[in-house]
Write a protein that binds this DNA or RNA. Sequence first.
DNA 1: GTAGCATGGTTACGAATCGTTACTGAGGAA
DNA 2: TTCCTCAGTAACGATTCGTAACCATGCTAC
Lengths: 133, 133
Amino acid sequence: MNETVQEGTFPSPGHHDETACARISQMLARISDKWSLLIIRTLGPGPMRFNALKRGIGDISQKMLASTLRDLEENGFVSRTVTPVTPPQVEYALTDLGRDFLVPVQGLAEWTMANSARIEAARAIYRLRVAAE
Amino acid sequence: MNETVQEGTFPSPGHHDETACARISQMLARISDKWSLLIIRTLGPGPMRFNALKRGIGDISQKMLASTLRDLEENGFVSRTVTPVTPPQVEYALTDLGRDFLVPVQGLAEWTMANSARIEAARAIYRLRVAAE
DNA sequence: GTAGCATGGTTACGAATCGTTACTGAGGAA
DNA sequence: TTCCTCAGTAACGATTCGTAACCATGCTAC
């Protein structure tokens, strides 16, 4: 997305500096979108082909799947191997980096599953509060 | 965002079902955007006021901060307390739910920090590969 | 007294992104 | 022949994002 990456200086080690924060925000921005996390999670158990991945995720469009996969490949999370047969066969798999990344992603997903009821409850309360004005 | 949630059918029980996956994807979609994670992370150490938060994050616009904070409040992650003085004083803080959520979010952020070099390396390789065509 | 600044937003508008639909082109099944 | 699958791409409208301006209020400087 944002291609302008300026490498900062490290003014004082130990002190939690500005550039680290900027880097986190930049990296998080690259990673933390709906489809990336969902794709990485779906690829967790093993390699998958394009349409299998699409079916596995469910409501993703071909365009979003293709472009997000390209981003993930660019960032080194997934590998793309083409077998030139007919019909064409393209397999996507997590790289070592992707498998490492799966750990915090699964953490997030598991937390989400475990706490969806709490979120729903909070939303219900919020709706009541807004309705009461 | 997307309020139309259609509950699917259960074709075969025991088989890891569709609705759980749909729910995860829905919840992840609500949570996993750049600004939400960044705001939650920034609120980690303690409550903050609107402009302090804005300065803390850096390159967020008032509009995005305001609307993301409203979403986070709606989902029960942050609380908003207004002190009616002049100038108006609005304090945002993580709720219990938000503090719980901070754990996987910090996991993600720490992973990101620890592995940003690997991502950068992967990106460099990708650029070379693309340049070579 | 009035020009500027801060606070916490909202609104308008252009830009970027997202999602839906249609299409590719080769092969296999009906 | 017609339809389907494979892995996408192109066009286009809808949605969202970000920038800039504005709001009311009170404080300070001039």
